[in-house]
Amino acid sequence: MSPNIGVIVFPGSNCEKDTIEALTDLGASPRLLWHADRDMGNVDAVIIPGGFAHGDYLRPGAIARFSPAMEAITNFAENGGPVLGICNGFQVLTEAGLLPGALQKNAGLKFLCQEVELRVENTNSVLTSQALEGQTLRIPINHFEGNYTCSDETLHELQIGHRIILKYSENPNGSVADIAGICNDNRNVVGLMPHPERACHTLLGSTDGRVLLKSFMEGAHAKV
């Protein structure tokens, strides 16, 4: 059975179709969901894709977090449903309080659009269950506000809880502890700045994103 995955579209999202394409190619049954809808139509998992929800006005994710769909996603996540935020989606999840910390402007003040090397730090999450610990993945980043920031206490919690799941091999944006992706306490909510959906086909230069999306599909399947 191929999992039903909802991809939330906000005004200003721009990676939803890439995400649908990659998931379809991997055998999932994805569909777009509108941010203003509370009803998520019994999906098995939810992805908040990249882009600039509501123009990133005020702060990335600051307005998106109050969308009706976010209420539904919060309930879904609390019930163990797999939730993935990619790039802007990660920013939305931190603003919504589903993941700790915040993403601020890159240390070098440059919009970064490049392939980076990631290291899988932990495989106990809905995004990394099929990957190998220590595995390196080449996946693109595409952001201006990807500099992960949190308090020392939060960083300590992330570290002792093994909730840092992906790190940059070479820190491109100033993120604390080279963090590229984290998960929540229950390991069903995950956020990362890199774009796995853009590394799912040889034509795109890398297929390293597939193992992450496959893991997520497996998590969605387990939910079924």
């Binding site: 601020q104 402007k105 890159n106 003040l109």
Partner: peptide, 13 residues
């Protein structure tokens, strides 16, 4: 404002 202790790349530039 950014909280004290939070790096401010715009400020330092």
């Amino acid at each position: 404002n950014l909280r004290e202790g939070i790096a401010d790349p715009q400020g330092s530039t």
